[in-house]
Amino acid sequence: MSRLHGLASPARFLRLADRVQPWTGWGAALLIGAGLVVGLGFSPADYQQGETVRIMYIHVPAAWMALFCYATMALGAAAGLIWRHPLAHVIAHSAAPIGACFTIVCLATGMLWGKPIWGRWWVWDARLTSVLILLFLYLGYIALANAFDNTARGDRSSAILALVGAVNLPVIKFSVDWWNTLHQPASVTRIGAPAIHDSMLAPLLLMAAGFLCLFLTLLFVRVRAGLLARRLRALRHARAHAPAVGGMDTGTGLS
């Protein structure tokens, strides 16, 4: 029975994923589609920023998702370390590249937005800079997770790193904010102003919900692929070792 320990729960997860995935997939398509239509077609242009404000409908949800993915990753890592459950590690590993992509989307849209507003592709704005460091935390995590021949080593090392990073993120955020106020006049317009009109809030929330559904869909796909990759490894190991055990057996075992 214990031999099935590593598989029982993933199988249940995959059954659940199979049932939920169509909903999240179609949900993502519809919500993002609706968000784009409303955001690009029906929401008003900003009186200061003009049409460029529409970049916000992708930029801001992407930034939220970048943080949400890191939280998912850190929670998966913590669960994997505490309960030693491979599924939690697979979830953490699967969330990381998705989060890195949302981070890149956030940075790219931030740069596209910055060119007309600031006149430069990159300004060392506090939020963008924090997100840039977040990207490197993601890349470090992914590099460490793949740096070991032994899957379990990669799982646990990267999990500890994810937690160390999670503890450090607020410190980094605070430091970068402080550094930014120190070095830059506060006249720079911040992206995603806090006071936002309802007509802009609707497409923003539609897009955020759509991105969340997209994340879940991609997560299910990646977790399934990750579990299959592990299963494949286990089968190959079993194939490599099965004849050896039979051939070298002293005759007492495996009866």
């Binding site: 031999r3 590593g6 598989l7 299963r231 286990a234 089968l235 190991h237 079993a238 194939r239 070792h241 099965a242 055990v245 070298m248 057996d249 002293t250 007492t252 075992g253 495996l254």
Partner: peptide, 14 residues
């Protein structure tokens, strides 16, 4: 103690 006697079979049964 012959550890080989407790050898476990393949991890995954296809």
């Amino acid at each position: 103690l012959d550890v080989g006697r407790y050898a476990a079979g393949p991890a995954v049964r296809p």
